[in-house]
Simulated scan of single mutants.
Amino acid sequence: MDAMPDEMSRGPERVPEGMDGAPDAALARLDGAARHLRTPCGAGEMAWRVWGGGGGIPLVLLHGGSGSWRHWARNVAALARGRMVVCPDLPGLGDSAMPPPAETPAPVAAVVRAGLDRVLGAGTPYHLCGFSFGALLSGHIAAEAGPALRSVTLVGAGALGLPRQITPLVKVRSETGEARIAAHRHNLASLMFADPARIDPLALAIQEANSQAARFRSRGFASSTSLKDAIARSRAPVALLYGERDAIAWPEIPSRFAALHAVQPEAWTGVIPGAGHWVAYEAAAGFNAMLADMLDRRFGG
């Protein structure tokens, strides 16, 4: 069965090249350029956005915890040159409904995997890239995927069975005005960015939009071995990327690479200098180039 199009929000097949200008307007342009689809999710629907086309193998991007498709705002245009880029809002986040009750990530990943079959068509080849909580779900999808999955790239991944540093976050929901912006800036500096000077108005706008819509809580999964156990069963090539100063991995990134290599000895690993956990935003140009090169040269397009 095909995915269910949201005809009221379907956009033209084009990808804006920049995210300059007022943040809300830039995000609206990017959103308006997407084709919007819906698939079943719990008692409601899961929201999908699709950009681009061309002859390359489609790339599926799964955002992080308490996030939405906006986590990829600085990546879509570059990555959609010559290929389709697919970004869902994960269950219980963004515009997507809550998933059925789940004690582990596996049932949530199953909802995403079923939706992906409807969006792309079962058996269509694709690459998968997941950030943070999206990396955890990517591992569970890879564990069950057939040959259609050509590669899986994990970005800023936890749940490898290793301890992580405490990242002190402040509550935002009760704050308003300048205090709310200050709370967002603190949390971005603590968890997401290596250099607080790079927290720009667009990052703050994304954080605000994501926070307002976040209902599903995924942080409890991060300290488990869930990703390591799942990705061990992947038959597709695996890559693991971190920003050099990722708050959940630094200073033990080599230990995380070793944990992955214990179950996927041929996995490719990489570090992007000077970036934090949200490496795809903070070091967008380097991230886009690294991922595109991997897809083209290492993973066959």
Rank of each mutant, 00 (worst) to 15 (best):
M1I: 13
M4W: 14
R10I: 08
V15E: 01
G18K: 10
A22R: 11
D24N: 10
A26K: 02
L27M: 11
T39M: 08
C41V: 10
C41G: 04
C41P: 03
M46F: 05
A47M: 08
W48M: 06
W48D: 01
V50I: 12
W51S: 00
G53R: 04
G56K: 06
P58G: 06
P58C: 11
L62W: 04
H63I: 02
S66R: 14
G67M: 03
S68V: 00
A73Y: 13
R74Q: 03
L79Y: 05
L90I: 07
D95W: 11
E103M: 14
E103P: 11
P107D: 06
D117H: 10
L120V: 08
T124L: 14
C129T: 11
F133T: 04
G134C: 02
A135V: 04
L136D: 00
A142F: 10
L149D: 01
L149T: 04
R150E: 13
S151L: 06
T153I: 13
G156V: 07
G158F: 05
G158M: 08
G158H: 09
L160T: 04
L160D: 03
R164S: 09
P168H: 13
L169H: 11
K171P: 08
K171F: 03
S174N: 14
S174F: 08
E178C: 10
L191R: 06
M192N: 08
R198M: 03
S211W: 11
F216K: 00
R219N: 06
T225Y: 13
S226M: 09
I231A: 06
A232N: 02
R233E: 05
P237R: 03
Y242G: 00
G243A: 09
D246A: 01
A249R: 02
W250C: 11
I253Q: 06
P254S: 09
V271C: 12
V279Y: 01
A280L: 12
A283E: 05
A283M: 07
A284W: 04
L291E: 00
M294I: 11
